[in-house]
């Protein structure tokens, strides 16, 4: 059985660490490790962005991350090792907002599970971002509407490429 680590870190206390994620999933039975690092970019929808503040409903988010990881194991093998840490707090441009690492015996499962984790987090996790713009304004991202059964309305993304 693979292992799972999920958490939310207050980045004013502890910046996210991609190498820690990679190390966590690098195990002897694994022949493939994939790593996804989300970072704050300097623009969105034509506006110059200076930073992003992440608001997180931590207990539900951790529960949600765990469920998503368990779903990935159900889909691509319970031997997957999975690491998922999301940032809470304010990040400047280039700051790391999420680290996902997957270790698997084979590359196909490692790539697919990594992609699954980030897409599901974006659509389902109780996390909100407040963008800070160069003109001094700030705005909450429009985001993806949740369904009461926890699965998101993905069609929203087609019109809103804010992620």
């Amino acid at each position: 059985m693979g292992k799972i680590f999920v958490d939310v870190w207050d980045v004013s206390q502890q910046p996210l660490d991609s190498m820690a994620g990679l190390k966590y999933v690098t195990e002897m039975p694994n022949g493939a490790e994939t790593l996804f690092i989300g970072t704050v970019r300097n623009h969105n929808l034509g506006k110059k962005v200076l930073g992003i503040s992440y608001d997180v409903f931590i207990p539900l988010a951790k529960q949600n991350f765990l469920e998503i990881c368990q779903e990935a194991q159900a889909k691509w093998g319970d031997d997957l090792d999975l690491y998922l840490v999301h940032a809470q707090g304010k990040l400047d441009i280039g700051g790391v907002s999420i680290v996902i690492a997957v270790g698997s015996p084979h590359r196909d499962e490692a790539f697919k599970a990594c992609r699954y984790l980030i897409e599901e987090v974006k659509h389902r996790a109780p996390v909100w971002k407040l963008e800070h713009y160069a003109d001094g304004d700030s705005e909450w991202s429009k985001g993806c509407e949740l369904c009461s059964n926890t699965h998101a309305i993905h069609a929203h993304d087609i019109a809103d490429k804010t992620h």
Binding site: H86, P126, G143, L146
Partner: peptide, 20 residues
């Protein structure tokens, strides 16, 4: 939507999400 609320409970509102 049809879950019954208990008196005195704290419920969290989740606007559309934008993590990652």
């Amino acid at each position: 939507e049809d879950a019954i609320l208990a008196a005195g409970s704290t419920i969290t509102i989740l606007p559309p999400v934008s993590g990652g």
